[in-house]
Simulated assay, not measured.
Amino acid sequence: MSTITEIPLTPSLACRFTITLAGALYYMRLTYDIAQAGCWILDIGDADQTPLVAGIPLVSGVDLLAQYKYLGFGGALIVTTDRGAGEVPTFDSLGVTAHLYFVAA
């Protein structure tokens, strides 16, 4: 049975925080890239803030960590929106109508 954890986020605010996922502590940074991508971007580091992956655009309906399985995150990161799969959370919808979940393997 998979454990699903919502990662609490606040709309309209770039944020940095640490979170325990699948028994490991990670540093996450979310920023909104209005200049180039027009979407929220996720960076993940280890507990010491050493970068592991950077520049992951938050798009719904896919496992954001699928291409990083070799790093052993122990699960999937999934974005959902009220608009459905393939949608991109807007600047003010993240944490309101768009949510980020970690699904432990």
Rank of each mutant, 00 (worst) to 15 (best):
I78G: 00
T50S: 14
W40I: 07
A24G: 05
M1G: 15
V88Q: 02
S60H: 08
D46V: 10
L9G: 02
A66L: 10
A104E: 05
D63R: 04
C15G: 10
T18S: 13
V103M: 03
T81L: 05
C15T: 15
R83M: 12
L58N: 00
V88I: 14
G72N: 12
T18L: 05
T5H: 05
T80A: 13
F102S: 00
E6C: 08
A22S: 14
H99T: 04
D63L: 11
Y101T: 01
I78M: 10
G75P: 08
P11K: 04
V96R: 01
L13I: 07
L52V: 12
S60M: 09
F17G: 03
V62W: 14
Q49C: 13
V96T: 03
F17C: 02
P57H: 12
V62Y: 13
C39Y: 11
G55W: 14
Y27H: 15
T20Y: 12
L77W: 15
G61A: 09
P11R: 00
D82T: 12
L77V: 10
R83V: 15
G95M: 00
S93Q: 07
P89Q: 02
V53A: 07
I44P: 07
Q67D: 11
L25E: 08
Y32N: 00
G84Y: 11
Y32S: 02
I44S: 02
L58G: 08
D46W: 13
P8M: 06
F17P: 01
L77P: 06
Y101C: 02
M28I: 09
L30Q: 01
A35S: 11
L30T: 08
R16S: 15
L100Q: 02
S60F: 14
C15D: 05
F102T: 00
D33W: 14
D48M: 11
T18R: 05
Y70Q: 12
P51K: 04
Q67F: 14
K69D: 13
P89N: 02
T81F: 14
A14W: 10
D46E: 06
I7K: 00
P57S: 09
I34P: 01
L9D: 01
L42E: 03
T3E: 04
L94Y: 09
G74E: 04
V53W: 12
E6H: 08
I7V: 10
G72M: 09
A85C: 07
V96Y: 09
I34L: 06
T18Q: 05
L94G: 01
L30I: 13
L65E: 04
E6L: 03
I56D: 03
V62N: 02
I7H: 00
V103K: 04
Y26I: 06
F17E: 03
R16M: 07
T20A: 10
T97F: 11
D63N: 15
D82H: 13
W40E: 04
L71I: 09
V62D: 03
T10K: 06
A66M: 05
A14V: 01
Q36W: 12
I19R: 02
I7C: 05
